[in-house]
C-alpha cells in the first residue's frame, strides 16, 4: 500500500479539515486573541490529525503487505483465507468475511465439478469393463471359426481394443484421486509383455526386435507402464519405413539415481521443429497428417500425463529419416512422490 494512494483516499477528510481550520481562522479575525492562539489551534489540529492518519496507515499497510507476502508464498493462492490473520480494523474484517464467503461458495462449485468428473470416470471405467466381455466373446467366435474374413475382423477388433484402452487411461490420467498401485516390477517382464501384445504386426511386418540389459527392477504400476510402452511401440510400428530393415531396440541402463529405459526405432523420424510439441494434446504434426497414419495426437499426451503421475521422466529424441528414441527414467528410490 503506497502512502500517496492512501493519502489520495483521505483527500476529502484533509480538505474538510483544512476548510475547518480556515473558517476558524476567519472567525477568529475580529477577536483580539494573541497570535499564539491563532497559530496554536491549526497546528494542534493538523498534528493530531496527521498522527491519527499515520497510525492508521501503518496498521493497514502492515496488514495488507502481509497478505500480499503470503499470496506470493502460497502455491495455491485460493488458500489465502486460511492463513490471513484477523484484522483489528473494519475493512480488514470485512475483507476476511467476504473471502470466506466466496471461498465457501467456490469450494462447493469446484466440488460439484470434481464429483461429476469422478462420476464420469467411474462410468467410463464401468463401460470399458462391460465392453471387454463382448470383445472377448467376438475373439472366441473368431477363434472357433477361422477364415480370412474372421482374421481381418480380428485385426479390426484389436484396433477397437487399443482405442478402448486409450479411453480408459485418458479417464484415469485426468483424476486427482490415486488409482494406481506402485510395486517392484521386472523390466524384462514388462517389455516382453508389450512385445508379445504386438507380435502379430511385428512378425508380419518383419520387424526385428532386439532387447537386452533388461534384468532390472523398477518401482511402478505394471498396468500403467505396459499401456505407456504399448503406445510408444505402436508409434514405432506406425511410423516405420516398411523396407524390411525395420528395427526396434529396447534396452535399459542402471544409473545412480534412476534406471533409464530406451526404446529406439529406425523409422521415418520427426521433423526437428515438431519434436518438442509431440506431447501436446491433439498435436499430430507432419507425420500424423499422412493419410494412412491417422494420428489422433492423444497417445503420447496420455503417456506424458501418466508418466508425470508415476514420477517417470519421459523424453523423445528424433532425427528425420533416421529414427526416434524414447527415453523413460524410472526413479531408483523406493520412495516415489505420490502426486
Amino acid at each position: 500500500m503506497k502512502f500517496s494512494s492512501f493519502l489520495k483516499d483521505k483527500i476529502l477528510q484533509i480538505a474538510l479539515i483544512i476548510f475547518g481550520i480556515l473558517t476558524i481562522e476567519v472567525f477568529l479575525v475580529p477577536y483580539p486573541y494573541g497570535k499564539f492562539i491563532k497559530i496554536y489551534i491549526p497546528i494542534v489540529i493538523l498534528t493530531l490529525y496527521s498522527i491519527s492518519i499515520l497510525i492508521e496507515y501503518f496498521i493497514k499497510a502492515r496488514y495488507y503487505s502481509h497478505i500480499y507476502y503470503l499470496l506470493n508464498e502460497l502455491d495455491n493462492k485460493y488458500l489465502i483465507t486460511e492463513v490471513i490473520k484477523n484484522a483489528n480494523f473494519i475493512e480488514g474484517k470485512i475483507l476476511k468475511d467476504i473471502l470466506e464467503e466466496t471461498d465457501k461458495s467456490m469450494l462447493e462449485n469446484v466440488n460439484q465439478y470434481k464429483y461429476s468428473q469422478e462420476d464420469y470416470k467411474e462410468y467410463i471405467e464401468m463401460w470399458i469393463h462391460e465392453i471387454k466381455t463382448p470383445i472377448a466373446t467376438s475373439k472366441m467366435i473368431i477363434e472357433n471359426n477361422k477364415s480370412e474374413i474372421t482374421k481381418s475382423i480380428d485385426e479390426e477388433l484389436n484396433k477397437i481394443d487399443n482405442y478402448i484402452e486409450q479411453a480408459l487411461y485418458y479417464a484415469r490420467s485426468n483424476t486427482v484421486e490415486k488409482d494406481y498401485y506402485i510395486k517392484k516390477n521386472n523390466l524384462k517382464d514388462i517389455v516382453n509383455e508389450v512385445i508379445r501384445k504386438n507380435r502379430a504386426v511385428l512378425i508380419t511386418e518383419k520387424v526385428s526386435v532386439n532387447t537386452h540389459d533388461l534384468e532390472m527392477e523398477v518401482n511402478t504400476d505394471s498396468k500403467w507402464i505396459v499401456f505407456i510402452l504399448n503406445q510408444i511401440i505402436q508409434n514405432s510400428i506406425k511410423y516405420m519405413k516398411n523396407n524390411n530393415l525395420d528395427q526396434i531396440n529396447i534396452y535399459a541402463k542402471q544409473g545412480k539415481e534412476n534406471i533409464t529405459l530406451y526404446i529406439e526405432d529406425n523409422g521415418i523420424g520427426i521433423k526437428e521443429g515438431e519434436i518438442n510439441r509431440v506431447f501436446e494434446k491433439g498435436f499430430t504434426g507432419t507425420n500424423g497428417r499422412i493419410s494412412s497414419k491417422k494420428s489422433t495426437g492423444i497417445g503420447l499426451y496420455i503417456c506424458k500425463k501418466l508418466c508425470d503421475k508415476l514420477g517417470i521422466a519421459i523424453e523423445l529424441n528424433s532425427t528425420q529419416d533416421k529414427g526416434t528414441q524414447v527415453i523413460l527414467r524410472f526413479p531408483n528410490d523406493s520412495y516415489i512422490d505420490m502426486k
Partner: peptide, 22 residues
C-alpha cells in the same frame, strides 16, 4: 484390469490372472 484386483486374486490363491479380451 488393475493391479489391485490382480493382487487380491493371487493372494486369495488364484494361479493366474488373465484379463479380457484375452
Amino acid at each position: 484390469d488393475n493391479d489391485i484386483d490382480e493382487l487380491l486374486s493371487i493372494n486369495y490363491g488364484a494361479d493366474h490372472y488373465v484379463t479380457k479380451p484375452f
